[in-house]
Amino acid sequence: MINVIIVDDEEFARSSLYFLLQENCENVQICGIAKSVDEARDLLSQHEVDLIFLDIAMPGKNGFELIPDARSNNAQVVFTTAYDQYALKAIKSSALDYLLKPIDIDELKETVEKATRLIGFNDYENNRNERLKDLTQNLSDKSGIRKISLPNSQGYTLIGIDEIIHIEADSNYSVFHLHNRDKITVSRVLKEYEEMLPENQFVRIHKSSIVNLNYLVEFNSKNGLEVLLKNGEKIAVSRRRASDFMDKIKVYTSYSSDK
Rank of each mutant, 00 (worst) to 15 (best):
I91Q: 04
L88V: 04
L66N: 02
D97L: 04
T111A: 09
R117V: 08
I67P: 02
K101F: 10
I67Y: 00
G63A: 09
D97Q: 03
A90T: 03
N122F: 10
T111Y: 09
K109W: 10
F64L: 11
N62R: 06
E113W: 07
K92F: 10
M58F: 06
V77T: 02
S72N: 09
D97V: 04
A75V: 05
N73E: 02
T80M: 04
Q85E: 14
T80A: 02
K109F: 09
D55E: 15
I91M: 10
A115K: 04
E113V: 11
M58A: 12
N73W: 00
L100Y: 13
Y98G: 02
A75W: 01
A115D: 10
N74E: 02
A75E: 03
D84F: 06
K101T: 11
L96K: 00
A95R: 00
D55N: 09
A57E: 13
E65R: 08
F79K: 00
D84L: 15
Y98E: 02
G63D: 02
D97C: 05
E65M: 05
D123L: 12
T116Q: 09
K92V: 09
R117H: 09
N74A: 06
I119T: 07
D97G: 04
A75S: 13
V78Y: 01
I91T: 04
Q76H: 00
S93G: 11
S94Y: 03
K109I: 09
F64D: 05
I56W: 01
I103E: 04
R71I: 06
I91W: 08
K89G: 13
D97T: 05
A87D: 05
P59N: 11
F79G: 00
D106C: 06
I91H: 03
D69Y: 02
N62Q: 07
I56G: 01
T80I: 14
V77P: 01
A95G: 00
L88I: 03
S94R: 11
A82P: 07
Y98R: 04
G60H: 15
L118P: 07
N73R: 01
N73T: 04
F121V: 09
G63K: 04
K109R: 08
P59M: 06
I56C: 02
V112P: 11
Y86S: 13
L99N: 11
I105A: 10
E113M: 14
E110N: 08
R117D: 14
D106E: 08
G60C: 14
R71C: 08
A57F: 12
L99E: 11
A70F: 00
D104V: 07
A87R: 06
D106S: 09
T116M: 10
A70T: 00
D55T: 06
S93K: 03
D104T: 10
E113P: 15
K114N: 11
L88Q: 08
T111I: 14
D104W: 12
I91Y: 09
F64R: 03
A87N: 05
E65W: 15
D55K: 06
V112F: 08
Y98N: 02
A75Q: 04
